[in-house]
């Protein structure tokens, strides 16, 4: 008797599941689960931008040997956010590969990744006929909340100088 009852429950469950899977909203929910599980695999994305707002927002900019800013997009065609994402993603991979603390990477890592990013930018700046100056600085700015709003702390991340 009991087994007959449980068989009925399973039958009803299977019927309900089938109806859910065949219903367009079922397709929709399954696709949402799929997108979130896959994360970033073009064209699939879980849209992570601004999903975990932290009390710090870093950005980078490019400067010449005197510290004067340079328009990275005007020179290389690559926007400032793309330069920042490229730097951070390479740094993450480097730290993961060499088991380093990604929040406090050693100077060698800063030099290596900074050098790679600057080399990439120089290449496309030359292709566009807008070469970058020989001495280049990659500046890091950290925006943090403060009592009167926010503060911006500027540090030199990497300097690319011509060999003497």
């Amino acid at each position: 008797m009991a087994s007959h009852g449980s068989a009925n429950i399973w039958k009803r469950f299977a019927k309900g599941l089938r109806r859910f899977v065949l219903h367009p909203l079922g397709h929709f929910l399954l696709f949402i689960v799929f997108l979130y599980q896959v994360k970033e695999f073009y064209p699939f994305t879980h849209v992570p931008m601004y999903s975990d707002p932290e009390a710090r927002a870093p950005y980078l900019y490019l400067a010449d040997g005197e510290g004067a800013p340079l328009g990275v997009k005007s020179h290389s065609g690559i926007t400032n956010p793309k330069m920042r994402k490229m730097y951070h993603s390479r740094m993450r991979s480097h730290c993961k590969e060499h088991r380093l603390d990604k929040h406090h990477p050693p100077q060698e890592a800063l030099n290596q990744i900074g050098g790679e990013v600057v080399t990439f930018l120089r290449k496309y700046a030359i292709e566009r006929g807008r070469p970058l100056p020989e001495t280049l600085r990659l500046m890091h700015v950290l925006i943090e909340p403060a009592a009167d709003g926010y503060t911006e702390t500027v540090t030199l991340l990497y300097e690319d100088r011509p060999a003497p």
Binding site: Y50, S51, D52, P53, E54, A55, R56, A57, P58, Y59, Y61, L62, P69, L70, G71, V72, K73, S74, T79, N80, P81, R84, V141, I143, E144, P145, Y150, E152
Partner: peptide, 28 residues
């Protein structure tokens, strides 16, 4: 955000500054 998105959402103000700076440093 471990369910903390609303609690932390005002920090997006910092990203408003970042977006402004990004736009400027792209083309000056």
């Amino acid at each position: 955000s471990d369910g903390q998105w609303f609690a932390k959402s005002h920090y997006i103000g910092l990203h408003v500054v970042k977006a402004e700076r990004d736009r400027y440093y792209g083309k000056l």
